[in-house]
Simulated scan of single mutants.
Amino acid sequence: MKKRFQILLFALVFAVVACDKPIMPKPKHLINEKQMIDMLVDVHLAEATYNKYRYDSVMQDNSSANFYASVLDKYAVSDSLFEQSYVYYASLPKKFEKMYRKVMSKLSEQEQEFSGRKEELELEFEENPGKNAR
């Protein structure tokens, strides 16, 4: 019984210590949290766009890598720096969870904004159908 208690105590201490310290050291050039959140939002949007249109004939010569590359180009960040920063933040579960909550919040805001604009455009078209036809 005492042996089980010691093993359980050791496992608990190990788990607590493991959650507090990052698995990997902080990269020399770490992407700051705000920019990382913005990049993750764009990565998710790029991925969703690719998945929506990947079977379209226009997209035959594109891959998801092109969409990721466009996000990296937008922020002028190399893929290795993005990967190092992503792994570093992911090694800090509590911080990473907070960051992803912000990512999801921004995506939800954009979805609501887009949905509202779509409804406004539909209403405008219904009120003035000849105005939008060219």
Rank of each mutant, 00 (worst) to 15 (best):
M1T: 07
M1I: 08
K2C: 07
R4F: 09
Q6Y: 11
Q6T: 06
I7K: 12
I7H: 08
L9F: 15
F10T: 00
F10I: 02
A11Y: 06
F14S: 07
F14E: 05
A15M: 14
V16P: 08
V16N: 11
D20V: 14
K21T: 13
P22E: 05
M24Q: 14
M24S: 13
P25K: 10
P25S: 11
K26I: 03
K28T: 02
H29E: 11
H29V: 02
L30T: 00
L30S: 00
I31S: 02
N32Y: 10
N32M: 00
E33Q: 09
K34Y: 10
K34S: 08
M36S: 00
M39T: 00
M39S: 00
L40M: 15
L40I: 14
E47Q: 14
K52F: 15
R54T: 05
Y55A: 09
D56V: 04
D56M: 00
V58W: 10
V58E: 11
M59V: 02
Q60T: 00
N62K: 12
N62G: 06
S63G: 01
A65S: 06
A69Y: 10
D73Y: 15
K74N: 02
Y75R: 01
L81A: 12
Q84P: 00
S85R: 01
Y88A: 01
Y89A: 02
Y89E: 02
A90D: 05
A90N: 02
L92R: 00
L92H: 03
P93H: 03
P93V: 03
K94A: 13
K95S: 04
K95W: 07
F96V: 03
K98F: 12
M99D: 06
R101S: 11
K102W: 09
K102G: 01
K102E: 14
S105M: 13
E111Q: 09
E111G: 06
S115V: 05
S115M: 12
S115Q: 13
E119W: 10
E120S: 07
L121A: 07
E122N: 12
E122W: 11
F125W: 12
F125I: 10
E127A: 15
N128R: 13
P129H: 09
G130E: 11
R134H: 15
